[in-house]
Structure formats: structure tokens, C-alpha cells
Design a binder for these strands. Structure first.
Lengths: 205, 205, 205, 205
DNA sequence: CATGAATGAGGATTCATTCAT
DNA sequence: GATGAATGAATCCTCATTCAT
């Protein structure tokens, strides 16, 4: 049992180390992109030696993949939380706002772009992104189609995938725009979202 | 005159070479990203020696900047053409469709992502993107605000920037989506766009 | 303490490596000049990989500058030692003789030429050379002006800078000559120096 | 005859072209050193195409060699002219002054350094320099040993080579110094030279 | 003769990865 | 486990030289 406890201690340490590396890597990638961030910089940020990183990850690419996976998981959760709200548009607004872009739970837009660009080349990443897309769409679709009584929107089957697609595209388009126009008028944005979301969430007459 | 003709011949060749290089570079960048594509590969693609490229461009970065400038110019023109149409949504659809992504006149979505990602780091590129954004927004805004008699949409001043923002975000969101889900259901897309665009283009009651 | 000892060990190794690189670089520069010596050759001479050099020096130019600085420091010390001697001319003779041009403490004339040539273009090097010149001149001047009782030459204020300039020019001229006429008659040289130095060191009547 | 005249015309043109190239090359070498000056820059300075240079010279190195040869020839002539003067020290002063360093007939000190440095590596250049040295020394020696009646200095056989060596070394040392300390006090220099030259030119008692 | 476009080998530098300690 | 020195392949870029026109 002591042995076991030791092992689990070791495992915990291992997990903590991986975490440190991923956090450092994410920070560096946000700052400089996947290519621009060197292993040396990541190691320095993680306050460890470059060599040690290779005890926890096979290669730089493995780190990138893990970070992508995580970002998509976070994104999926964030989207899922959206529809719990009565007030979708302000939730989207918050989602889009991104107070502290480096905390573990946030989606970083710059990174998201990097990931999307990478996906056009790396099929592994492309696949991960598609899994994510599918999950998000079905999630959103479920919500749109559920009756209002159950907290849904009561859209009819036909319109659901259409609306889900639009909603997602809009959200992503806004993210993209927001990440390169940081001083976009927030009020304007909120108003626009209110209107749009209302339209999308209301069953067509 | 012979001199002049010769000169113009040389200038023509020079332009043609630049074009060759840009085309090759664009192809490589699409394939491997700005970083991933090496000058050697670009040279090989352009069927010339690496050294020759430097007769026409100061550096790899100069090529990247030129390609970005061109992409944005094309994108701007494409957006401008959109509103000439009676049927906006199907034009957006075509815009989004992008049959042959390497022809000179087309916007390449992978490249667009690459550019956006790069913009988060390179202020020069960020500025170019913002110029582009401003131009496109005002273009679209003009069209939305003009009276229907003049081919516009007759939206009132308040709503114009809001709608323009939404429209653009939607378009870009769809582009992004389309570039990673190439087998997205086209009919679904067309239907969704029809509905959305109608909503966005109609004055609020 | 073990930590401290380890650290000092690492620091020692680091210093040793820098030394290795500088020695190799100096040998290569003497052989082929600053331009002619490639980093690859220097690395090979230092028996290490080219990449490793950059752990210790920022650039090839940084190495060049360091070597120049060192050469000038050595040269300054050598000049300073000259005037401690009763027999200046034979010290100059030794100075000029330079048995083993690659040992750390020696001035290499070929390198000195390279440095001087480089100084006509690189203001940083020019400045270093001028600092060196000023130091040497004042050093020599002090000695010339001090009373004989203190081991000086007792020259009056007026003549001091004139004589210092001549003495230095003569020494440098001889170095230059010696570096390209290695089989210059040593006896001839010694005689000439004896006479010249005597003249220069004696107060004008 | 017409043929001959044509040929000689052609030969003249050829000589003129070579001259142009050498002049341009010298200007470039002075500005940037042998290595720093590119064939392209030389061609531009000579107002011709890079390719044309190769009709007149085998290689860049051939140009360098020719320029060195010329510089030494000029230097030899300049030294020879020195002793025609009654007032040697002021002639040396002029020699050292170098008003317009790019005119064909002048010695350029920066170039001289470049040449000397190159000589430590290239035996061909080293030999040329030694030929030059020998010529200059014998020239100077002749003058020193000739009777005063014949415009010489009347030095006795023994001291001649010694004095010649010193004189030359001094002159070269001053050149070196002057080329890196352009704002050296001219009056100081003149005074120093006066004194030194007098000493060197006067027979030992 | 003359041009200048084209070549390609070579140079400085970077960085993911390995390995002796 | 941990270090960080070491490697060497790969990258961007330059420039002497050639050759089709």
C-alpha cells in the first residue's frame, strides 16, 4: 500500500508537471504562435530544463496536439453553458469578451486561429476540429429543438441544423473580428447580438 | 522606340517573374503555412533558383506582405461585388464556395486564417487587416443605408453599422467553417443564408 | 556548498569553452581573415558543433569584437611593460620579435592589420582602437616626462607628445614591416632601434 | 592600315574599359574592403553590367591583384619623389596628408592596410609587397648614401640600410596612425617629423 | 561587344532533440 | 528525476560567376 501510495504520489507529480508544461506552452503559443515559440522559451516559462519536457511529451508537436485538444474541450464546455442561460446574447457577449486570455479555462482566440490554420494542413488536427464542431452543433441543436418548457427554443426539426449552423458561424465570425479589432464598440456589439440571437432563436412563422 | 519596346519587354518579364514567385509562394503557404514553406520549396515550385527570388523580393517577409495585400485586395473586391446582386445570399454562397482556391482572383481561406493568426503578432499585418476591415464595413454600410431605389436596402442610420458588423461576421464565420468542413451540406447552407440575409437586410419594424 | 561548487564548476567550464572558441577563432582569423574564416571552420577548429558557439557568443561579430578587445588589452600591457626596462630598444626588439604568435598573451601582427583595416569601416572598432591609442600614448608620455630619478626620461612638456607619437609610429611601422618581412636582418634592426630610441628618449639640447 | 587603326582603337577602348573597372573597384574597395565590395556594386560604380567585367578580368581576385600592383607602383613613385626635395619632412607630411584619396595617383591608406592584411595569407601578394619594399629601400638607400653634392645625404655605407629601414618604418607607422586618427594635430606631426627626419638624415658623429 | 537574368554553392544562425552527468 | 550542454540539420540570404539574347 505504501508502494501504491508512492506510485500515486509519483503519478500526481507527473500530472502536475505535464500541467506546468502545457500552461507554459499555451502562454508561449499565444504570444508567438506554434512555430514562433521555441522549446527553450517554453522550458524557461515552465521553469524547468528543456530536456525535462521530453520526459513528459514526445515532441513539440505532441504538446501542440494536447493543447489543441484542451482548447476544444474548453470551447465545447463553454458553448454548452451558453444555452443554460435565459439570456443567450449576453452570454455570447461574455464568451466573446474573454477577460483573462491565459487562464486555463478560457479560449484564446489567437490560439484558435492558429489551430484552424494548422488544421488545413494536419489531418489529425482537422479531425479533432471536426469532432468538436459536430459535438457543438448537436449540443446547440438539441437545445434549439427542445420545447420551451424544458428550457429549449421549440424550433421544428427542419430549421434546427440551419439555425445552429448560423449561430455558430456568427459566434465564430465575431470572435475572429474581436480578436483583431480589440477596441470594437461593445455596446454596438451587444445590440447587434441581441437582435440576431432573437431572430435565430425564434421559430419562423 | 526599340529601346522602349525592349524596356517594356524587360518590365513585362519582371512582372511575370514576380507573378510566378507570388503564385508559387501562395501555393506553398497554403500547403505549409508561412513558416512551413521554405524559400527553397518556393523556388522549386516557381521553377527557379532560390537566389533569383531575391532579385524580385527583398525577403521572404516581403513576399508574405505582398501576398497578404493581394488577398485583402481581392477580398475587398469580392465583398464589393456582393451587393451589386439582387440576390445577396446566393452571391455569398458563391463567394464562400471557392472552386479553385489557387487561381489569382480567389480568396484562399487557409491563407486567410494564416493571415489573421499572423496579425495577432505582426503590427504591420494587423494594420493592413484593419484597413481592409474598415473599407469593407463602410462599403457594406453604404449599400445597406442607400435607398432601395438606388439599389440599397434603405436601412436607417442607427442600424446600419450593427447590421454591417453582423453580416460580415456571419460571412467570415461561414468561411472559417467552410474551410474546415469542406463537405458541409450546400443546400442547408443556402437555406440558412437566405433566411439570415433576409433578416439582416430588412429594416427593423 | 555542493551547489556552489557545482555552479563554479559550470562557470569554469563555460569560461573554458569561451576560451576554446576564442582561441580557435583567433587561429582562423589569422589564417584567413575575419571574413575568410567561416563559423563552420571555427567550430571545427574548436572541435565543437557550429551551434554550440552561439551558446557562448551572440554572433560572429561578437567574437571578432572580443578578440579585438583582447588583442588591444595585450598590446597595451606589452607597451606598458616596455618602459620598465632600462634598455628600451631591446625590449621593443623582443616585443617585435613575437616567437609564438598564437599563444594567448601575444599580439598577432596579422590580426592587428586586420583590425586596423576593419576599423576604417566599423565605427565600434575604430573607437576601441582610439581608446587603445589614447591609453598607450598617455602611458608612454608619462614615462617620457617623468624625471630620470623616477625611472622616466625627463623630457620637457612640449616635446613629450611629439616624441610619444614618433616612438609609437616607429614601433608600429616596424611591426608592420616585420610581419611581412619575417627574415629581416635582426642585427640590423637592433642597431637601428638602439640609435633611434636613444635619439627619441634624449631631451633636445 | 585601316585594320590596324581599328585594332588599335579597339585596344584603346579595351584599356579604357579596364581603367574604368579598376577605378570603380578601387573606390569600392576603399569604401567596403576587398570582401565587402561586391562585383555588382563595382559594376554599378563603373556604370556597366557585371557580366562585362569578366570580359576584361578573369575574376574578382584578378582585379584585386591588379589594384595592389598599381598601388605599390604609385607608392614606389611617391617614395622616389620624396628625396628629390630639399625639405624631406614636409614632403613626407604631404605624402601622409593625402588630399583626395580616390584619385588614381594617390595611395589609399585603408587600402594599404587591406593589402598588408591580405599579404599575410596570399603569397602572391606577399611577394609583390616584398618586391615593393626592396625597391623602396634601395631607392631610399641610394639617396641617403649619395654625396651631398649630388643631392644625397652623404651617409656612410654602414648606416644606410639602418636609416632607410627606420625612415620607412616611421613613415608607414605614421600612415597607419593617420588613417585611424584623422584629426591628429597636424602641427604636432610636422614638428615631430622635422626633428626625426633631421636626425635620420644626418650622419652620425 | 554588352546586358542582366539566372545559377547554386556557401555563409551565419536557429532550434528541436539527445544524452552524459 | 533533472539538468543544460551539445548536436547538426535546416533556414534565409548573398554573391561570384555564367550565358542566352
Amino acid at each position: 500500500m505504501s508502494n501504491q501510495r508512492q506510485e500515486s504520489k509519483a503519478a500526481a507529480r507527473s500530472r502536475a508537471q505535464k500541467e506546468r508544461i502545457l500552461a507554459a506552452a499555451q502562454a508561449c503559443f499565444v504570444e508567438s504562435g506554434f512555430h514562433g515559440a521555441s522549446m527553450a522559451t517554453i522550458a524557461e516559462t515552465a521553469e524547468m530544463s528543456p530536456g525535462l519536457i521530453y520526459r513528459y511529451f514526445d515532441s513539440k508537436n505532441a504538446i501542440i496536439l494536447e493543447i489543441i485538444e484542451r482548447q476544444l474541450t474548453v470551447a465545447r464546455r463553454r458553448i454548452r453553458e451558453l444555452h443554460c442561460s435565459q439570456n443567450l446574447s449576453s452570454r455570447i457577449f461574455e464568451y466573446f469578451e474573454e477577460k483573462e486570455p491565459r487562464e486555463k479555462d478560457s479560449i484564446n482566440h489567437a490560439l484558435y486561429l492558429e489551430i484552424s490554420a494548422q488544421a488545413t494542413r494536419d489531418p489529425q488536427i482537422a479531425e479533432a476540429l471536426q469532432r468538436y464542431d459536430a459535438a457543438v452543433c448537436s449540443e446547440l441543436g438539441g437545445w434549439l429543438s427542445h420545447g420551451r418548457a424544458e428550457g429549449g427554443c421549440g424550433l421544428s426539426g427542419e430549421t434546427v441544423p440551419v439555425r445552429a449552423l448560423m449561430l455558430l458561424s456568427l459566434i465564430e465570425g465575431l470572435k475572429l473580428r474581436g480578436s483583431r479589432e480589440p477596441d470594437l464598440d461593445r455596446r454596438l456589439l451587444q445590440d447587434a447580438l441581441d437582435e440576431m440571437v432573437n431572430l435565430l432563436v425564434t421559430p419562423a412563422e
